[in-house]
Nucleic acid binder design. Structure first.
Length: 304
DNA sequence: CACCATGTTCCTTG
DNA sequence: CCAAGGAACATGGT
């Protein structure tokens, strides 16, 4: 469930539940998610610590804790990777198969579970320093965005996934924002016209805000079973068991009609990731053929 | 069995 | 040093 809107909703959900709670026991079942923090270091730091605040930076969850009244604040960084979840449950409740870290706070467990273990739960916060601006903050103006784009010849879709450019978009919202802006995912970043930059800047923010709004109005079950939990960008539906369904316009909709013009949505691969777009609403540049696109060279890789 | 998956990081090549 | 491309990480769904 991990792009900016999902993390934002999760942070808003957890913040009031966690603040004031004190960790009594720390259990690590998959040490790799802590790296480079060691199990011992995490346990020593967190045992007896109280949650003071929780916020979000890009797709990261930033937990702030304090041990004792005067002690310094410590920061715990969380990331959901592709399949991570975080939630509180009764300490009696059985733990999920892929629980990576469990923090017992009184009668409740704060659980970080992650099926694929791509997520993070660490005291090392250095990655935050490499993140670009928050797309929904005032500092992130269209001019700032355009300036950043002008320094790259890489396809715009790929740049949108670069967390150093702007922090928080992932593969879903990158395609969604480009569709809303009616910009082709293949255009080299620095080739976007000024008005295209402006449209994309606006569309990114609209798409992210829309997802947060929708997520806020849907009854999510953070610890629940079943797919779709914690995922959103939902709208009401009479066809699904939950009564809600995702409202994505192009993501994972190849072969289906474009919601604007009914042209068939296409899928192709960029930087080893799927991109979805409407060839009519998001036409590529005419004129120059792009080389190195749609056909890859045979780089024979050698093993180390 | 084959392929695909919401993310980040490391390695290689140019 | 930088940019770009791809594989790796680990598990599950279709």
């Amino acid at each position: 469930m991990p792009e900016l809107p999902e993390v934002e909703i999760l942070v808003r959900h957890l913040e009031p539940l966690l603040v004031g709670k004190t960790i009594e026991e720390v259990h690590v079942r998959r040490a790799k998610v802590l790296a480079p923090t060691s199990v011992r270091e995490l346990r020593q730091s967190l045992r007896g610590a109280t949650f003071v605040a929780l916020s979000r930076r890009g797709k990261y969850l930033v937990f702030e804790l304090r041990r004792g009244t005067d002690a310094k604040l410590l920061t715990l960084l969380g990331h959901l990777g592709m399949t991570g979840r975080m939630y509180l449950q009764d300490a009696q409740t059985s733990l999920p198969k892929h629980a990576a870290v469990i923090l017992r706070c009184g009668s409740q467990n704060f659980v970080f579970e992650d099926t694929r273990y791509f997520g993070r739960f660490t005291l090392d916060t250095t990655v935050l320093g490499d993140l670009g601006p928050e797309p929904l903050n005032a500092e992130f103006t269209a001019a700032v965005f355009g300036e950043a784009l002008s320094r790259s010849g890489q396809a715009i879709k790929i740049k949108l996934l670069d967390q150093r450019l702007v922090a928080g978009l992932g593969n879903i919202y990158a395609s969604e924002a480009l569709f809303r802006a009616e910009v082709s995912p293949r255009i080299p970043a620095r080739r976007l016209a000024g008005e295209e930059v402006a449209r994309l800047w606006k569309a990114m923010r609209w798409v992210l805000r829309e997802a947060i709004t929708r997520g806020s109005t849907v009854p999510l079950r953070y610890a629940g079973e079943g797919r779709g939990d914690g995922l959103f960008y939902f709208g009401r539906s009479t066809e699904t068991p939950t009564g809600y369904e995702e409202q994505l316009r192009v993501y994972d909709r190849q072969g289906r009609p474009c919601p604007k013009c009914a042209t068939t949505i296409k899928r192709f691969v960029q930087a080893a990731r799927s991109t979805f777009f409407c060839p009519k609403c998001q036409p590529g540049r005419r004129g120059k053929a792009k080389r190195g696109e749609g056909r890859k060279k045979d780089s024979l890789k050698t093993r180390r």
